[in-house]
Amino acid sequence: MENVWFVLIAVLWTGYFLLEGFDFGVGILLPVLSREEADRRAIVKTIGPVWDGNEVWLLVAGGATFAAFPEWYATLFSGFYLPLFLILLALIARGVALEYRSKSDSTRGWDRALFWGSLVPAFLWGVAFANIVRGVPLDADHEYTGTLLTLLNPFALLGGLATLLLFTLHGAVFLALRTTGDLRQAAARMAKSISPAAFLVVMAFLLLSGGGGGAVRWAAVALVALGLIGAVAATVRGRDGWAFTASAVAIVALVCAIFSGLWPNVMPALDPANSLTVTNAASSPYTLTVMTWVAAVFTPVVLAYQAWTYWIFRRRLTGAA
């Protein structure tokens, strides 16, 4: 059951990065694509009906980690307290901006909050996962012994830049899919401009991360490369749906590469003897069994609701929307 829940948590993070990834990208691109209020309003409307539902994946991933791997949760949230707290503040600022932007006479302050509330998590999630992949200083009690500067190492900053560029590209492709006219063309141009840097940085991060995973991990790395190439190729040809699918494949494959490289660890330590694994960090078999039944009942409901939401709000928007 421990391995099953390791996979399920990887799936939850995949869903979060896939869906919140384009939310972050849209927020980052908001002040870049247009200075016209009508266009900015259309940009915000592309994620307005879905952004809060997308955040559910993060809440469930955190809750599942707490219940299935309490040792992992405790070490992660104590050692990474400041970065995770900054992410929380940024998400709060972004949520407030999305809710109150349309209710204010002046939108400049809300647009800034939306921009920084998207950029900060897009960067810091990469920093956090890069440190997990690299390994962190843990003592024999699995307590983090480093400092904030320990987390801001060059490899972690590379990981942050990788997720920042990947989510920005994902957001540009999403906007090209969901808008029309000049706004769609601007988003497509942005996707083509970002893609070379995103490809180089993401692939550098994956190649430098090393780790285990064997054939599964290297297959995932290859899919990341193909997804990024496919996204820009489809954008050039005006195939927005295929471009979004390709960028989605790249994100899914990235998370797969990270988690397949981690297993059987959940939090590697610089001293391997102190690493947290799926075995020593897991809850009791009874707890995992109960969680499995709960997940089997409620997960289809959540998926059905989100699918319905995206179907209802599927039409393209214009600056006049």
Rank of each mutant, 00 (worst) to 15 (best):
R108M: 08
L148A: 13
G241C: 04
A122D: 11
A90V: 12
A90W: 15
L124H: 02
H170L: 04
G53S: 14
L33G: 14
D271Q: 15
I312Y: 12
A204T: 15
W72M: 02
F115T: 14
A215D: 15
L262Q: 06
I258P: 00
A220P: 14
G53Y: 11
T145V: 15
A231M: 13
A186N: 01
E37I: 05
A68F: 01
G25T: 14
R134H: 11
A61W: 00
I251W: 09
S247A: 11
F244W: 12
N3P: 01
G63D: 00
V301A: 15
P272K: 12
S102Y: 07
G160W: 13
G213E: 10
E99P: 09
V136L: 06
D111Q: 14
L206E: 02
L164D: 04
R189H: 08
H170G: 09
R178Q: 05
I9N: 14
A122M: 09
W218E: 06
W242D: 04
W308N: 10
V294M: 14
A67E: 02
V266T: 10
G261F: 08
R40N: 09
V216C: 04
L82W: 11
E37A: 09
N3D: 11
N274G: 00
S193K: 13
L114D: 04
A233K: 05
N274A: 15
D271F: 07
G210Q: 04
G171R: 08
K192E: 07
A222S: 13
W308P: 00
A186E: 11
I258W: 13
L12K: 09
H142M: 07
T14H: 05
S104N: 09
V173Y: 01
T14E: 14
G62W: 10
G159H: 05
S284C: 02
Y305K: 03
T150L: 15
I43A: 07
A10M: 05
